[in-house]
Amino acid sequence: MASASAASEAADPSAGSPARLVVLVSGSGSNLQALLDAARERGDAYGAKVVAVGADRNDIEGLRRAERAGVPTFVHRLRDYATRPDWDAALTESVAAHRPDLVVSAGFMKIVGASFMAAFGGRFINTHPALLPSFPGAHGVRDALAHGVKVTGCTVHFAEAEVDSGPIIAQGAVAVHDDDDEDTLHQRIKEVERGLLVDAVGRMARDGYRTEGRKVYIP
């Protein structure tokens, strides 16, 4: 699968039009809503707009958020395809149809494949509820608690073939309280994560970015 190991850049922000975002969701879509709100409240000054929302399941709040905002949606359920590569190819085609500058995984709970990474590697953004490279995988909050860390947080990074391994764009720290359980800690992480994602996407859209090896630079 493709990666962002070579130097790469976003669309030139000097072109004047907002960067086009396609957002992928699997659930409530709170990160999606934060992006929608930023674009609505700040207009062109934010530098990006959500042009489509995709999902891997029907009847979820993330799709309803998009529909209320007047944003086109599409759904590709894995079980509707004979093979996972078939699903991946269909998802890739639907995302590409909206000509995105950046693709954002906002709680999208499927691992994309070779077709998707070949098309969008280096501009596919993911979030993770821990300070990568610590505690990768599906249980980052639980693992951090079990390890006894005093500080955890969230990471905005480029997605690559290996889960939670791509170059880090931004990170935010969250203190772990003595009485925290997984739910209380995760809620505080989500609050930081939403702001971090909105800020990172906006800066990348407005100012451009480049990736050199594992380092992401935003002017």
Results as ranks from 00 to 15, higher is better:
49 K>G: 10
49 K>Q: 15
49 K>L: 14
51 V>N: 01
51 V>P: 04
52 A>V: 06
53 V>K: 08
53 V>N: 04
53 V>L: 04
55 A>Q: 08
56 D>N: 15
56 D>F: 10
58 N>W: 14
58 N>F: 14
59 D>L: 02
59 D>E: 13
59 D>V: 11
60 I>H: 12
60 I>K: 12
61 E>Y: 10
61 E>H: 14
61 E>I: 13
62 G>P: 11
62 G>D: 06
65 R>A: 04
65 R>W: 02
66 A>V: 03
66 A>R: 05
67 E>C: 07
67 E>Y: 00
70 G>Q: 11
70 G>E: 08
71 V>E: 05
71 V>H: 04
72 P>I: 02
72 P>T: 05
73 T>P: 09
74 F>L: 08
75 V>N: 14
75 V>A: 10
75 V>E: 12
76 H>I: 01
76 H>A: 07
79 R>G: 10
80 D>W: 03
81 Y>E: 10
82 A>S: 13
82 A>Y: 02
82 A>I: 05
82 A>T: 12
83 T>G: 11
84 R>N: 06
85 P>H: 00
87 W>F: 11
88 D>S: 08
88 D>K: 09
89 A>T: 03
90 A>M: 03
90 A>P: 06
90 A>S: 13
91 L>N: 11
92 T>Y: 03
92 T>R: 13
93 E>N: 06
96 A>Y: 01
98 H>V: 03
98 H>M: 04
100 P>Q: 06
101 D>S: 02
101 D>A: 06
101 D>P: 13
102 L>W: 00
102 L>H: 05
103 V>E: 07
103 V>P: 13
103 V>K: 08
104 V>D: 02
105 S>H: 01
105 S>V: 00
107 G>E: 02
107 G>C: 01
108 F>L: 01
109 M>A: 01
110 K>I: 09
110 K>T: 12
112 V>R: 05
113 G>E: 07
114 A>C: 11
114 A>T: 15
118 A>V: 13
121 G>A: 15
121 G>L: 09
122 G>A: 06
123 R>L: 11
124 F>L: 15
127 T>R: 09
134 S>K: 15
134 S>D: 12
134 S>W: 05
134 S>L: 14
135 F>D: 07
137 G>L: 00
137 G>T: 02
138 A>L: 15
139 H>Q: 10
140 G>R: 01
142 R>V: 05
144 A>N: 11
144 A>M: 04
147 H>V: 04
150 K>E: 10
151 V>C: 06
151 V>S: 05
154 C>L: 11
155 T>L: 00
157 H>Y: 01
